[in-house]
């Protein structure tokens, strides 16, 4: 069976990043991680503040 891959107009290529691109990607990843962490922390603290002890008051 001939595969469509044989005639693929966009053949897969390996992408090798330059050191500058690798460095900026790492910095972006760290920034996204920190932002997500702070976002989760914000929601955790707000939940505790809004619900208080009620956060434990739920049917089991």
């Amino acid at each position: 069976m001939s595969s469509i891959v044989d005639h693929d107009p966009f053949p897969r290529q390996d992408v090798s990043l330059t050191p500058a691109q690798q460095k900026s990607r790492r910095a972006r990843n760290i920034a996204i991680g920190v932002a997500l962490g702070l976002f989760a922390l914000l929601f955790y603290v707000v939940t505790i503040v809004k619900l208080g002890p009620g956060v434990l008051n739920r049917p089991l």
């Binding site: 693929d8 390996d14 691109q21």
Partner: peptide, 14 residues
């Protein structure tokens, strides 16, 4: 099955 157009290194966000 398909392949996405590969990004060249120059197109990668820096």
């Amino acid at each position: 099955s398909y392949h996405l157009k590969a990004e060249s290194a120059a197109e990668v966000c820096d």
